[in-house]
């Protein structure tokens, strides 16, 4: 698997799009730091960007890479290599290369602005952890979708739709449900519903940092316990881990059944 991973990774690292992605983060990082001249504010703005953008880029890159490397995949399938190895290797290759762009692209400007000397290193670390998780999750989802769809356009469409659903529509439905049923106790439902969407989970991790004072204004004991202690952070991070593993398992499963 390491070999496949290595080839996919270097294949991507050398592609034009990786540079564009890396450059994008470099520009955003420097621009935000230049405009705000304040690490903390730049991190807050970036968190808002990362939560929406990283899943989109992950989905698009995942789908694109899957379809554009189909022939390469067939070449590999004829070699004495397990299927699981091939797909997980490719998946990890792309997820790592995207994460690499994210880490380097944001890391350079922030290091240049003296991140190490500031108290913001933990928030920045959280930003990178969330970004990396979202990359791994959405590339895996993109791979799982592509594996089930022979048709490139369809696969691409479903991928974008999934992103749109997770990033916007889900929250809309969520809010409508909350407002409709606000006579009932909703805190369990609310927490459960936010665990079912990795974008919401990441957003909550960020809320825990930025809006803890507002979150603690809510009366529910469950909320208090969840947000008021370290539980929220631990639960959210471990749920993100589950969200990474499940689509990877889907990749393994559908790759085992598929005809090429």
């Amino acid at each position: 698997m390491i070999k496949i991973l290595k080839y996919s990774f270097f294949d991507l690292i050398r592609s034009r799009w990786s540079y564009v992605y890396l450059l994008f983060y470099l520009i955003i990082g420097f621009a935000l730091l230049f405009l705000n001249n304040n690490l903390s504010k730049a991190i807050i703005t970036l968190m808002n960007i990362v939560v929406v953008l990283v899943p989109m880029i992950g989905t698009i890159f995942g789908v694109m890479y899957y379809y554009s490397s189909q022939e390469f995949t067939e070449l590999l399938l004829a070699q004495p290599i397990k299927r699981r190895t091939i797909f997980l290797g490719q998946y990890l290759g792309i997820a790592l290369s995207l994460s690499f762009s994210l880490l380097v692209g944001l890391g350079i400007p922030f290091l240049a602005y003296g991140l190490m000397q500031s108290g913001e290193i933990w928030n920045f670390g959280l930003l990178l952890i969330v970004g990396t998780f979202l990359t791994f999750i959405f590339v895996a989802l993109a791979f799982a979708i592509s594996l089930r769809n022979e048709n490139k356009i369809k696969g691409f469409g479903y991928g974008i739709l999934l992103w749109l659903f997770m990033a916007v529509i889900y929250d809309g439905l969520f809010l409508i449900l909350l407002v409709t049923f606000d006579d009932y106790p909703l805190d369990k439902f609310t927490l459960a519903a936010s665990f079912l969407n990795p974008i919401d989970l990441s957003r909550i991790l960020i809320l825990l940092k930025l809006d803890i004072s507002a979150l603690l204004g809510y009366t529910g004991a469950l909320f208090q316990q969840y947000f008021g202690t370290g539980t929220g952070m631990i639960m959210s991070l471990s749920s993100l881990a589950i969200w990474t593993v499940v689509p990877m398992w889907m990749i393994v499963r559908s790759s085992g059944k598929k005809d090429f």
Binding site: A167, V168, L178, F189, T190, L191, Y218, T219, G220
Partner: peptide
């Protein structure tokens, strides 16, 4: 206003939908 009426909705703070 939404949060005032439905306090649980606070969890959707900073989401793209709420921004929209």
């Amino acid at each position: 206003y939404v949060v005032n009426k439905t306090p649980e909705a606070i969890i959707l703070l900073r989401s793209l939908f709420v921004d929209i």
